[in-house]
């Protein structure tokens, strides 16, 4: 059946409608997970709050395992979905910059807008900085354009690169994630006194 637009079940005009619905759902879930609080978000870097790790790891393993079943049931043809092209070293550098910004500002781009939606001032300034950063990046882009596009590996998946079947990754990530859940819960119990407040 899926993906719906390449299979012509619905037309490409629906792209933006679907985008806005997913966006609303995503924003709601970020807020519901407590991601509009920079204390929750940055806690993972200081080792007292691992809600970010748990929420994102849950999303990753549910999506990973779920997609494999969806493909099997014929609901979503995995060979037709878009795979983001990989640029190895620019992506690593980009993640480091993103991580530094995350721990300094206490938000990532998406969560800062969720926090603005509930009226957080720090998020507002974070978002202003975000746009200043985007502007600087855009204006100086020609300077590092070559690096930006270097090391292209194409639209590859881990299976393409390593030759290891997808279920191994799904299972491996699931085990790591589940272990991380339990370990982080233990750490939180030791570090924090008021565990009642953040129910695990």
């Amino acid at each position: 059946m899926g993906p719906l637009i390449p299979n012509e079940i619905i037309t490409g005009d629906w792209n933006f409608v679907i985008a806005i619905l997913i966006g609303i759902a995503f924003g709601f879930l970020l807020e519901a997970s407590g991601f509009s609080s920079s204390r929750n978000l940055a806690g993972v870097f200081y080792g007292y709050n691992f809600v970010v790790l748990r929420v994102f790891f849950t999303a990753v393993i549910v999506a990973m395992v779920g997609l494999l079943y969806f493909d099997y049931f014929g609901w979503l043809d995995l060979s037709k979905i878009f795979i983001l092209p990989t640029y190895l070293s620019p992506m690593i550098l980009g993640s480091v910059i993103m991580g530094i910004g995350f721990v300094m500002g206490g938000f990532c781009p998406g969560t800062s807008f969720t926090a603005i939606a509930i009226g957080k001032m720090d998020a507002l300034f974070f978002a202003i900085g975000l746009f200043i950063g985007i502007f600087i990046f855009g204006e100086s882009f020609p300077l590092f354009k070559d690096y930006y596009y270097s090391g292209s590996m194409g639209n590859v998946t881990l299976t393409d690169v390593t030759g290891i079947a997808a279920p191994w990754f799904a299972f491996g990530f699931t085990v790591i994630a589940l272990a991380a859940f339990w370990v982080s819960a233990e750490i939180e119990k030791k570090v924090r006194k008021n565990t009642k407040e953040y129910k695990f």
């Binding site: 393993i61 395992v65 099997y72 279920p167 085990v175």
Partner: peptide, 14 residues
Amino acid sequence: MLLLALGTFFVPKK
């Protein structure tokens, strides 16, 4: 979740 992840090994390959 562990059982579901294990189950993906038994999904036939395309």
